[in-house]
Structure formats: structure tokens, C-alpha cells
């Protein structure tokens, strides 16, 4: 464990807490893409299959439980909660996210480190996470004004994998036994690059203290 990995996990944790805070306190999920949340729940379900079979550390197990619990409770809020679900704008959240799932699954079957069920599912989760934000980014472009909490949520979500990239670089040079993980590295880089233009507009809006508006 290094400081970059810890910072990445904390940033990721902050992103889900910001989202839960928004939904739980103001009882609204306006501007949040349910499709991205569904993809993330799938990412965690596929990635953490080893949660009960392979104990690595208490920290890892606790964090996996938090990410699983938070992502599924966000789904519950957005789909079942009588007040919150009314603020979900399904006419705007139209990205056909099913078209993301199948290609990631096929790619995971073709390109993986080991052809076992758990390894293919883990690889599938890596590929899917790289594109899971797309419905949310598309929704942000549509809903002109982005409220602060949603902007913070997306920013933190993009920053966490960026910190992981620094963690991978650090581990590669600092840990003699750390080998190459091209699948994780390339997917993580692609994932972070998808946020590039969002980061640009978000940082500008924070700097100039104006509301975040993404270009059409």
C-alpha cells in the first residue's frame, strides 16, 4: 500500500459518499445517470467475486463491502425510493449502456491474464469501469447546469483512477516483485482520459467561481 493508492481509494470513497449525501439529504438524484450507477454496480459485483474466497487484507475487504453496499444502495434509492425516484429524468438518461456491456464481456473473453471464470469477470469489470462514466458524461452535456454535488461526484470519480495511475508507476519502480499489468494500466489510462474535457471545464468553473457548464 502506498500513499497514491490510499489517496485514490479515499477519493473514490469520497465520490460515493458525496453521491449518497446528495441523494439522502436533498432526496434528489437530478442530473445523476442511473445507467452509470447500474454499470458501476455491475463493475463491483464482477470485480469483487473473490471477496469471500481470497482474503487479502482487512482494508481491502472493508473497502469492497463499502463500494458494493454504496453502489447497490444508490440503485435502490434511484429505483425504489418513492421521493428520489421521481427526480430521476429517464428521458434525458438515454445512453444505451447495454451496448457497453457486451463488447467489454467479449473483450474480456479474448484478452485476459488467465482464462478462468473469476479472472475473466475481473477483466470484464476493468474494461467496463473504463466506459461506465459515459452515460453520466452524456447526461451532463444535456442538463445544461450541473449542480455542485454532481460536479464534485464526477470530478472525484475521475480523479481516483488518475491517482491509481501514479500508484502503478510508483509500484513499478519501487516494488521489485510488481510485474506488468497492461490490461489494468491501459484501461485505467483510457478511463482517466475520458474525463479530460470534464476536468478542464470543471477546474475552470471552480477557478472562476462560476457554475459548471459543459459545451453542447
Amino acid at each position: 500500500m502506498n500513499i497514491f493508492r490510499l489517496a485514490g481509494d479515499m477519493t473514490h470513497l469520497m465520490s460515493v459518499l458525496v453521491l449518497l449525501l446528495k441523494i439522502h439529504t436533498i432526496k434528489s438524484c437530478a442530473g445523476i445517470s442511473l445507467k452509470t450507477q447500474e454499470l458501476y454496480a455491475l463493475v463491483f459485483a464482477a470485480r469483487y467475486l473473490d471477496i469471500f474466497t481470497h482474503y487479502y487484507s482487512l482494508y481491502n475487504t472493508v473497502m469492497k463491502l463499502i463500494f458494493l453496499g454504496s453502489s447497490f444502495s444508490i440503485l435502490w434509492y434511484m429505483k425504489r425510493h418513492k421521493v428520489v425516484r421521481r427526480s430521476y429524468d429517464k428521458d434525458q438518461d438515454t445512453f444505451r449502456h447495454h451496448f457497453l456491456v457486451l463488447p467489454c464481456l467479449v473483450l474480456a473473453l479474448l484478452i485476459n491474464e488467465k482464462f478462468t471464470f473469476k479472472e475473466v469477470m475481473w477483466t470484464f469489470s476493468i474494461y467496463l469501469e473504463a466506459v461506465a462514466i459515459l452515460p453520466q458524461l452524456v447526461l451532463l452535456q444535456r442538463t445544461r447546469n450541473v449542480d455542485n454535488l454532481t460536479g464534485q461526484y464526477v470530478f472525484l470519480l475521475g480523479a481516483y483512477r488518475g491517482l491509481y495511475i501514479i500508484n502503478w508507476i510508483y509500484r513499478y519502480f519501487a516494488e521489485p516483485t510488481y510485474s506488468t499489468h497492461w490490461i489494468t494500466w491501459i484501461s485505467g489510462l483510457l478511463q482517466t482520459l475520458l474525463y479530460a474535457d470534464f476536468f478542464y471545464y470543471y477546474i475552470n468553473s471552480v477557478k472562476n467561481n462560476v457554475r459548471l457548464q459543459l459545451p453542447a
Binding site: 481509494d9 488467465k114 475481473w122 510485474s179
Partner: peptide, 10 residues
């Protein structure tokens, strides 16, 4: 470089 296939990150 030897590295067990288990995934130690989140």
C-alpha cells in the same frame, strides 16, 4: 519479476 495473479487492488 514474480507476481501472484491475485489482484491486491480495488
Amino acid at each position: 519479476k514474480v507476481d501472484d495473479a491475485s489482484h491486491d487492488e480495488l
